[in-house]
Nucleic acid binder design. Sequence first.
DNA 1: CAGTGGTCTAGACCACTAC
DNA 2: TAGTGGTCTAGACCACTGG
Lengths: 262, 262
Amino acid sequence: MATPPRYRAIAKALRDEIIAGVLQPGAKLPPETRLVERFGVSRDTIRDATKVLIQEGLVERSGTGRGSGMVVRDRLMLVFHASYAEEPGAPRSEADSWATDVRAQGLDPSQDFTCINVVLPDDVAMRLGEPEGAAGVLRRCVRYVNGHPSSIQDTYYPIWLADEVPELRQPVDIVQGTTALLAERGHIQVGYLDHTSARMPSPDETSLLRVGPGTPVLLKIRTGATRHRVVRVTIEIMVGDTNTVEYEIGDISAIRIEGEPA
Amino acid sequence: MATPPRYRAIAKALRDEIIAGVLQPGAKLPPETRLVERFGVSRDTIRDATKVLIQEGLVERSGTGRGSGMVVRDRLMLVFHASYAEEPGAPRSEADSWATDVRAQGLDPSQDFTCINVVLPDDVAMRLGEPEGAAGVLRRCVRYVNGHPSSIQDTYYPIWLADEVPELRQPVDIVQGTTALLAERGHIQVGYLDHTSARMPSPDETSLLRVGPGTPVLLKIRTGATRHRVVRVTIEIMVGDTNTVEYEIGDISAIRIEGEPA
DNA sequence: CAGTGGTCTAGACCACTAC
DNA sequence: TAGTGGTCTAGACCACTGG
């Protein structure tokens, strides 16, 4: 067993205190100067150690100036129900479904809509079956939980669909939901293909979602199709460690659904 | 616009080169000493800048000693089909399904099985409907792609099921698949509940999956039930930015399935 | 051996903000 | 104004490994 570098040993000591509950979620870590005394190393070494914990998502820096410090993170998990949010004939829009999910978990949802004309990104164009460089409409919905950004949802529609259903260009929530609106106009989505992955946020996403280092994003790309063709692609970017996507497959009547996953 | 700190400006300059394609995936970044000259800052500042890129998952340190360096990451995405991998009556086991998926993407799959008796983790016990502290059996499958660890799959069975189906304790692949085996013994799984989220890896996971900083893990927790009760919980931990989980919902016959998601 | 990154120090100056 | 973290420096020594 090689002796680990001091900063790793210090990170481990602090991590163990957090895991053991000596430092509870929300608790403040001692200031850097105190840790310098305690471990007998330079401040930079302490900072290297705390960076490890921040990168692991265990700790975050809170505030600035006097009274600021490092606190143990307290992560609340939000469950999003992916498999029935948009069932054809669902009694509510996807946005309503989300808001209902959030309220059911005792939190306060809100959202902002914007809408612009865009050139479709290549991967989106591919999924939509449109040529590269084709135009389209992007509806962006930024969702907040308790006033804090929680996810970005970008839905791309092909230009022919936006021409046919001009309401898609309105930068407001569509009351009955876009899925229901499209269904009314004869474009009934009957199938979805979802792709989920995770990565670190880009600088843009970092500022939009206001996440710090050590927080990955969870990506969900949904391709929605009618019986005849693909009509939209939705790219949802969530704060990865506070959002859970749930899928139900088959008959789950024997499974007690819990409010506390992951 | 406040002027950003130098290390961020340098990170941006290098990031822009990567995005613009000046530095292609697989290309080596200049050594730190060269970057010190180029940007006219101290080595620590260069290191702060490169740490940002590493944390973003754009760059990784490769090797050690002479000839080592920092290279632009080349991420290949692996698609895992979650919604039909275990369909009742599927012609192949889940492990085979995975291996087939990997081979179909031109890569070389392999896996290791281990099996131990455990005390069920609290969250697993809850999902299984067992009391806290109950015993169970853990089957762990570590999966490799081209010899590199790609995912850890931990499946927990309640003790009563392992007693009834003792093959579950064998630390080898079960030819027909555990799902098929259980079905043969009268425990036909008819429903699954999946929870997906992302977080940074723990130190254990970092060494098991051999991932560096800047790589999140993608978590998929599957609860499987027969018509009458929950029979297993599978926690799958994947390298987040090289794995995609795919779900098919409804009729997707109009969607051209691509081999290139995310 | 020469060049790479890995770790560590001791000090400096800054911006911010609760007290 | 005092205490917090944020940035930056100039130098040091180390382990590792390709040539």
